[in-house]
Design a binder for these strands. Structure first.
Lengths: 251, 251
DNA sequence: TAGTGGTCTAGACCACATT
DNA sequence: ATGTGGTCTAGACCACTAA
């Protein structure tokens, strides 16, 4: 009677990740109108024919994304969408979500040629190579908003110039295209959040008054060898954007 | 010859957490001048007489705190302090770190009596009870800075008024004192980061010009039953404070 | 090829919440 | 008393890196 597609390992994806994807889709689809009706670990083990380890790894992902909450003795409940943040929020807990965050917003960008890394950024990462980085500039908009929610400047390391030239606007995010074109993997992202005043060009692009407060997010994309291959600087209008996150307690 | 205090379970603390505490102390103490000299999983298993599960749980904590990086095939290396963020940074990945973040800064606060929750906050959490919350106000300063790095307003839920009256300034953070005084546990924190203009009182307290950009962090402290028992609103001067974080890649 | 960390199994005992 | 999720063991196989 069990028609569920068994969680296999054929595609190369770990089982716990495939299981997490499956359960995440169910939750976002609204399959659990009653939050307490989420299956227990033992049920998931039986239903998908995997060990408890695999189930727990999958649920750990969902918990870190804020989709479920777990309590010893009681069980697992899905977190109501209302508690997951309001309209202008961007909850992020892993690289996958940075991609997925494009869900209900759209991003268009265009190539700006090559340039030395702006001084603020080169100081920030301690880069003194002085090479020319490929530069892209983009705007993120959200339906129902009266203006863009982000202006993003993206810089690609000089060593990846060949791949950078093949990047096409309006498809995947820049770092995903880079992964594919240059055959590299992203290991982690470091992020720096600061409040700044809108400079004239930023204010114009975001359609906000000059000097109005902006959230600036500096991201460094790092490969497994600790090389920074991409840097992005995003400016978000203070009144149209909030960065939401949740932090689990130590047990 | 092994004089290491065995990782026990007597104190009630899980073994993996005791191990993480031990290794974290070693790293912060500078016991690994050569970052690559960090022990492998099998060495840690043998040295502390625990299973690989326990070791990996401990290392998972340290990795989420950005203290170590791990690579299949190569090994585990401690993350050089330089790569963990510069002077004004506050890296946070769990509740423990929010406490620990007091490391090289000092925080003083004073009671401000009781007040209805400010409208901005009550709207944010959807609270319409209208009760009077205990209010504390504090300043965080950092040695070597020419001004405070945070102005924090903390509000305690009316139900905890009895405990709130016993809170003493200049000791533990408010939420730690609440845990002790009211016998509650904190399950998680939700956080909202936004850029705002300094209002007159905020500007005066932070010693910055009026309307200068500020990072505002709204925190809701939630108990295991999903009740918000504390809310805090922190304002950080844009030019003296950055919020740093790191995000691991999906495997 | 040897050794690393990543995934996975099948068990076990426990603290805790609910019945 | 039952069942939940949290901790922990002892194995195993694998993908990957480095020598």
């Amino acid at each position: 009677m069990d028609l569920s597609i068994a969680i296999r390992n054929g595609n190369g994806k770990p089982r716990y990740q495939a299981l997490a994807d499956e359960l995440r889709a169910e939750i976002l689809r609204g399959d659990y109108p009653d939050p307490a009706q989420f299956p227990t670990e033992s049920i998931l083990c039986a239903r998908y024919g995997v060990s408890r380890f695999t189930v727990r790894e999958a649920l750990r992902s969902l918990q870190s994304e804020g989709l479920i909450q777990r309590r010893r003795g009681s069980g697992t409940v899905v977190q109501p969408a209302a508690a997951r943040g309001g309209a202008l929020h961007q909850p992020l807990s892993n690289v996958g979500e940075i991609l997925q965050y494009a869900r209900d917003s759209s991003y268009v960008f265009e190539p700006m040629g090559t340039t030395p890394l702006p001084r603020k950024l080169s100081v920030h990462i301690g880069d003194a190579s002085g090479g020319r980085w490929h530069h892209f500039r983009g705007l993120r908009t959200r339906q129902g908003e009266q203006g863009p929610i982000a202006l993003t400047d993206t810089y690609i390391h000089p060593d990846l110039a060949a791949a950078a030239r093949q990047i096409r606007p309006n498809e995947d995010p820049v770092f995903r295209q880079l992964e594919r074109l240059a055959g590299l993997r992203i290991a982690r992202i470091t992020q720096d959040i600061q409040a700044v005043s809108a400079s004239a060009p930023v204010a114009a692009a975001l359609d906000v008054p000059r000097r109005s407060p902006c959230l600036r997010i500096l991201r460094c994309f790092v490969d497994p060898s600790d090389r920074i291959f991409e840097i992005s600087a995003s400016h978000h209008p203070g009144d149209r954007f909030a960065y939401a996150m949740h932090i689990e307690a130590d047990k």
